[in-house]
Amino acid sequence: MAAATDPRPWTPDQPIVQLIDVHKSFGTLEVLKGVSFDVKKGEVICIIGPSGSGKSTLIRCINALVPVTSGTILVENIEVADPKLDKLALRRKVGMVFQQYNLFPHKTALQNVMMAPIHVLHQDKGEVEERARALMKKVRLTGKEDSYPGELSGGQQQRVAIARSLAMRPDIMLFDEVTAALDPETVKEVLFTIRELAEDGMTCLLVTHEMNFARDVADHIYFTDHGVIVEHGPPASFFSAPSDPRTREFLSQVL
């Protein structure tokens, strides 16, 4: 219990995210039935699996958007399931991007990016604006700073959402099916941005249906079905020689 209230200082050689036997039920429906895995700093993890297999729930547990029923989640040695958890401190370390972008429609793209650092971290406005403009350039949306979300395409909105999350300077980024709502042409630009992030050394956890992208970018792939991890491995062996019949069936349907 002492570890929960006074976490061991985290060092980069330890797993940055650690899940130990995580269970989650919604009422009588058990969505996660004991999930365990480690993520090392700078790793890119892709979680794939059929819909309803608990992928989104799993990723939402990591930043405490969804409370777990039992089990342990450690993010930089902070116990996420601890009821006394400082959720705000956790969420400053963990950025999240959603399937539906969820930009704030009453603010311009640049204001969307600047809001959290100014209001949550109370950082200097001038400095935040400089950083926000740099982030807009990084996601290749220079010139769209003053556009409102409603004036941007899906792919552009999603890149603003990525920039908004990065403005908090997180250590880990969670991507929850971020390309699922996009047109095929715009999927590419969003994936390109994520790939750049991964190459910069950002620790990324992605729930995705983009198998080719997972194969190219991921360091490790987890396949979930009915709330358990059925199979995992580096992409090369995972895609070429899946061992579990459920994985083989899923891959045969999506590839």
């Binding site: 400053r92 950025g95 959603f98 539906q100 704030f104 949550v120």
Partner: peptide, 25 residues
């Protein structure tokens, strides 16, 4: 409710979310 989720994931407090994000909309 996704607006609340997005604000939550950016470490906004519920009060901040209400006044900065929900009420202006």
């Amino acid at each position: 409710s996704t607006q609340w989720e997005a604000a939550e994931s950016l470490a906004f407090t519920p009060r901040q979310t209400m006044w900065q994000i929900i009420l202006p909309q």
